[in-house]
Nucleic acid binder design. Structure first.
Lengths: 152, 152
DNA sequence: GTGAATGCAAACTCTTTGCATGACT
DNA sequence: AGTCATGCAAAGAGTTTGCATTCAC
């Protein structure tokens, strides 16, 4: 396996933080690697659980502090899908990104991309009097499994 | 002043709840009227504050219960813009709705509508394998006041 | 060595829940 | 009268913060 987007983001994030004068501690590296390792978005607790399952341990507070740092430096994007806890995911320097569909029955979150949607938002952003620098789109509904007829 | 959309929603909501067998209590009516009275979206605490300023009082728990009821019955829509607390706003039976731009500096929330955006989402919804029945779009940025050069 | 980052625990905020009281139908 | 809804207070969940210790530079 060669260079994946996740690997690239990990390195980009570590380098960016180092360049900005932040120290490279093991907890920070682990949080970043764990985020990259998850397919899509993660919550603070999910990171803690994954790390614990790998035999290590990072205090929840440190995870929150790292996530906050990543968000503030633009290395990650924070968003919520309405289930109480914040989700974070890597933000690629290319601006490339996706959005999410949430199953309101089982809580499943799956990503999607849509160029037409991005264009509509871009045009809109140019028309409003806010300086728009990010956007969230979340679709709500039921996943195929949940909208299937009840099992018996 | 005649019939406004807000008035209509208030009546629609009260009637719908009554028809569904829910009791018409004063707290519920007040919450609904207060929601209608606010321009856009509200938080539970905002409702409590407005009600208190008008000389009445409703327990926070009842406000939350009413908001939850409105959300479950489709009379209101719940969403979050990332400032910790949930916001609710009237959902019109016509399906007419808007989205929000949030100023990440001062927390100001302003509504917008965009037909092209709605169309893009509608087309997208038809293409995914989820049964999509709602969507949130939130733009983040800085409002004109906050992006202005710092005052001196 | 010095200042920044961690970990723990306490504090906070938002929201939900249990239970007795009061109100709508 | 019989329920359903309210209000209060306590409980929960997620997140932030204070502070002593540890670690990176």
């Amino acid at each position: 396996m060669g260079t994946t987007p996740a690997n690239e983001w990990t390195e980009h994030a570590l380098r960016t933080l180092a360049d900005a004068g932040y120290r490279s501690s093991e907890p920070r590296q682990t949080v970043i690697e764990t985020m990259a390792g998850q397919g899509c978005s993660v919550t603070a607790r999910e990171i803690a659980d994954v790390v614990r399952d790998e035999g290590s341990h990072i205090g929840l507070a440190s995870i929150y502090r790292t996530l906050d740092l990543l968000d503030r430096t633009g290395l990650a994007q924070r968003f919520e899908v309405g289930e109480g806890s914040a989700r974070y995911e890597p933000a690629y320097p290319t601006g490339e990104h996706h959005h999410h569909i949430v199953c309101d029955s089982c809580g499943d979150v799956v990503p999607f991309e849509d160029e037409a949607l991005e264009q509509a938002i871009e045009r809109l952003a140019g028309r409003v009097d806010f300086a728009v620098n990010a956007h969230d789109v979340t679709l709500h509904g039921e996943c195929p499994a949940c909208s299937a007829p009840p099992r018996r």
